[in-house]
Design a binder for these strands. Sequence first.
DNA 1: CTTGACTTTGACCTTAGGTCAGGGTCGACG
DNA 2: CGTCGACCCTGACCTAAGGTCAAAGTCAAG
Lengths: 257, 257
Amino acid sequence: MTSGVTIAQAAAFAGVTIKTIRHYHRLGLVDEPRRDGSGYRRYGSSDLLRLVQVRTLAESGVPLSEIGALLGADPQRFAADLAEVKRRLTERIEELITRRDLLDRVANGDRALLPDRACALLDRAADLGFTSDEVAAYREGMVLARALVPDGFDDSLTEVEHALDDTRFVALIKQCWAAKDWEPDDPRIEELATAVADRFLANPALLAIPNGLQARTDATRYGLLNHHGEDQEPAMARLTTLVETKLRSAGVDIPHQ
Amino acid sequence: MTSGVTIAQAAAFAGVTIKTIRHYHRLGLVDEPRRDGSGYRRYGSSDLLRLVQVRTLAESGVPLSEIGALLGADPQRFAADLAEVKRRLTERIEELITRRDLLDRVANGDRALLPDRACALLDRAADLGFTSDEVAAYREGMVLARALVPDGFDDSLTEVEHALDDTRFVALIKQCWAAKDWEPDDPRIEELATAVADRFLANPALLAIPNGLQARTDATRYGLLNHHGEDQEPAMARLTTLVETKLRSAGVDIPHQ
DNA sequence: CTTGACTTTGACCTTAGGTCAGGGTCGACG
DNA sequence: CGTCGACCCTGACCTAAGGTCAAAGTCAAG
């Protein structure tokens, strides 16, 4: 009268594989049941109960290494632990929900990298007549800035929002983009640098950009950010350097290199 | 003018560890970026974009081995795949929610093993005056039955529900429980067996129990189920055998052993 | 008496990384 | 100038929660 079910039946009952059951035996999570004459495992209902308990906890995300202690605790301790497991599970569910919503951003390419506010700023730049290349370069700068100085990123967005209100400044920036293709010794660079520096000094809101940047970060990072991508454009490098020199001589504190 | 961010900054930006990024490089999921003079990896914004894309998909449950193909597909294919990922994620979320609700059952011990309907039946048995030991034994039987013959379990519940409506039958079953402690050769066993068999034959709804069981399963399993736990109670074994013999001689088809 | 389905053990594979060891770089401080 | 702490490099091994494969014993059926 060999009573009890075989391992395959126990597995089907608990909704796991045979391997999983044996795994639990090896971990000591479920005691080995009685064996019949030929050495087959025979599971009784208490074994099945234990198996289902372990399975339910495991599927709720409790690590197998913790389940033993959990099921061994006294009832009120167990209830508390169970509530904690439930809380963590709820947390995980909510995380997955936000994760799902984030998937939409990945579908939209670059939008995945920047917060909504920054994307709005890029849209506005496009509206102001910047070419898509220019907008793309600006996006790249913002991504880099956020990676380098995450703390100050929101503030810098505010500053740039103000800067885009200054139509004179916007016009100058467009000219700077044109300077990209000039020869490094083109005399117009000197001229443009003076105009840009003057505009910076004329509008204190604009000065907040280099000032804020410098306050939030160290000189090295400032350089990395502000001179980013100049390897390919010597004219731009010279322009930036000239503007920085002019601002410095006007008393603005800008780190070197 | 070493432009680009270091691996630690890229990791912080994407919300992963340095090890994870290197892991992605080894899998070819994210191309190795440029190296600076000292061999350090330098990440540009396109690297960061890729990293965030991979990360978002990975956290949405897409296996790393599939992410490469997914991100390499043409836009409309990508959109379709993304929708599929989203669907699976939603499925997973719903599964976790039911899992969370199931945790309450584990807290209630045995309730984890049986569906609500079976639990209700046990409650009703308790109300009918069966002792908690008897109810527990019955629960054990149901768990075993469900493991052995999951398909027929619901039908058998219906049959038992009807059986509990038969007050005469319920009274007899209680007497059978009392017989557990009798000597195997107690003459009252013969008497009781006759009463039980007569009751089975008098109420066709009761006969549905052995008939249904036999129809759904093979003889071996029937034996396992019906003689389960008799090792310890020789009186019970004799009682069962007698009842089976009487039913058989009355034309009811019951498998041997 | 053989066939196919089931069981046993043990050794190795998998995914998505983590840990450790041994060594090279960088910026800052004394 | 040395050296300290914080980074970075590679490569080898470790982890969880099983899955796969192999060799061999068991069981019920045809």
